[in-house]
Design a protein around this nucleic acid. Sequence first.
DNA 1: GCCATGTCCTGTAACGTTACAAGTCCGCTT
DNA 2: AAGCGGACTTGTAACGTTACAGGACATGGC
Lengths: 336, 336
Amino acid sequence: MVTMQDVARHAGVSVMTVSNVVNEQPHVRAATRAKVLAAIAELGYHVNTTARSLRQGRTGVIVLAVPEVDRPYFGLLATLLIERAAARGYDLLVEQTAARRDRELDSIARSRLRSYDGLILSAVQLHDDDAGLLRGDFPIVVLGERSFAEPLDHVLMANEEGGALAAGHLAERGCRRVAMIGGRIGGPDEIDLTTLRARGFLSGLAEAGLAADNGVVRPTDLTFEGGRETASALFDELDGLDGLFCATDVVAIGALRALTDRGLRVPQDVKVVGFDDVPLASFLSPSLTSVAPDHAVMADAVISMIADRIEGLRAADDYRTFTGAVRLVERESTAS
Amino acid sequence: MVTMQDVARHAGVSVMTVSNVVNEQPHVRAATRAKVLAAIAELGYHVNTTARSLRQGRTGVIVLAVPEVDRPYFGLLATLLIERAAARGYDLLVEQTAARRDRELDSIARSRLRSYDGLILSAVQLHDDDAGLLRGDFPIVVLGERSFAEPLDHVLMANEEGGALAAGHLAERGCRRVAMIGGRIGGPDEIDLTTLRARGFLSGLAEAGLAADNGVVRPTDLTFEGGRETASALFDELDGLDGLFCATDVVAIGALRALTDRGLRVPQDVKVVGFDDVPLASFLSPSLTSVAPDHAVMADAVISMIADRIEGLRAADDYRTFTGAVRLVERESTAS
DNA sequence: GCCATGTCCTGTAACGTTACAAGTCCGCTT
DNA sequence: AAGCGGACTTGTAACGTTACAGGACATGGC
């Protein structure tokens, strides 16, 4: 490995001068700079970022912990975050938690991750009991789903509002018997994605004057297969459903498939609304009406929050919460 | 920051003993180990991986350079690679190249990336002229698309065979006039994905005795939108097409949408085959027949290739190529 | 002509870890 | 009783970089 030592010797200057050239410090004569750059080129020198990190106490790497990058929403998120992190000079290291609590705890605790500059933790399955672990001097931003009593930096989504938008839209389009899959009826303290979207959905139904009998909200795995199975079971049990809200677009795609398999036409027989507005939504047949978060704005918020904290631009006890707005994008799946 | 020094002092042993405990070296008395572990717990010590990396000369981080993790194929790939890398003790840092040659060159050249242990470079837009950069002592595995004359570790896919499979299948299902979008007619030296799949497609057509007039292979962006636009333009121009092969499933999804918009039914009027077999394929309506690489096997090959090289388990001049097999998965889009 | 100021360059000492070689102690063999 | 080998422990010197303090020299103001 070529070191600064080698370059310095080759160029006839001190290591510090090489360092100053590499780091574009002022006060280096043009002639000296040229000499050093020539030596660097000739020897094929690359700065050793590990040594730099050790010396400077920062690595320039932020860890992104998501369930799986292959899921459309998280893929989109990761894409945006990687791009924005790069713009601020950080690399993103992706850690997959499979949405399991133990793996999320791992991400926080694992020593090696502690050596990076910060952690963006998405899709949190942690309990309030675990939240203490998130506290401390290590920069963490919690993204998207769960808000703890703990003081923490948060980027949230208007999940409840989105659920209400979906319910209102279905009602407005004439649906009389509406169900949700991928939702959960939880206590007032439960604030995960599925519970919040369900809560919004139910309040939206109430506001529209639609009945919400008990079976109308069904939990499911937030996967294609989960959507298909749960939708299928739902339509086996209940008659006369003419509107369906799915907790995510992925679930909605599974549900659309289940409806097709039963010979139900969308939107004529059943209208369907998803959530996330993934790029794919407009290319499906029928294209999918969806609650659209502003992904770009949220990604901006995440990166500026974590970078500001890493760089000490915010006081240690100054925790922020950003809630991204949502809007409804109407497409064929709810056409009247 | 708590260091080994602090732990050593607190436990009344030397730093080396702390290091030995942390690294689970033998020859540490149980009582000593317990003392050290207690001190570690009490002080909340975490090993500083940056210092460890500097000392050991390796970081445990592999860079994965893909166009964008949000594209279904690359998302799936990234998911599998992250998982398998973790199993071998490596973290994966994701770099996005946007499929641009300059950004790919960047990934190779950027100093900071040079400090990681290896690079997995996917979807390569580099010329043969650039290939020299890939040579050298830095562990690189080139994935999926382009095979250079340069000696390099490669993981390829049976692109040509896949194209032929698709053509054969369409012919066998009774298609008489078949086109491909997302393909390119290139010289014999051109070996990128689009050219190879097109070449296989044409040879498959020939074998089946089907005409391949000139306009039958159309290039396009490998995106949803590209698929839609190109398919739309193609069916504007040519009459009587009854079979369509798309270079990727993403393109196929765009094409399916275009066909629906024109009132063409799949598979009754036009049969469609994609390539990649992304999970989504079976949930579309109609579900999509696709050429399926064995993603898991390829991911295994990639990780063991790069890890073996990083760990020096293979001679410096012993370059390997692994070609992943493909098979055709028949679904509704080509039902007869 | 002298001090102040600025430009350019350099030596030294860390950053926190581990490789290596060199101990110390103990019980056991001969 | 001396010698030996094994179990356990430790000091020291790196790994390659940058922060810091300071040195050498020239310029300019009075």
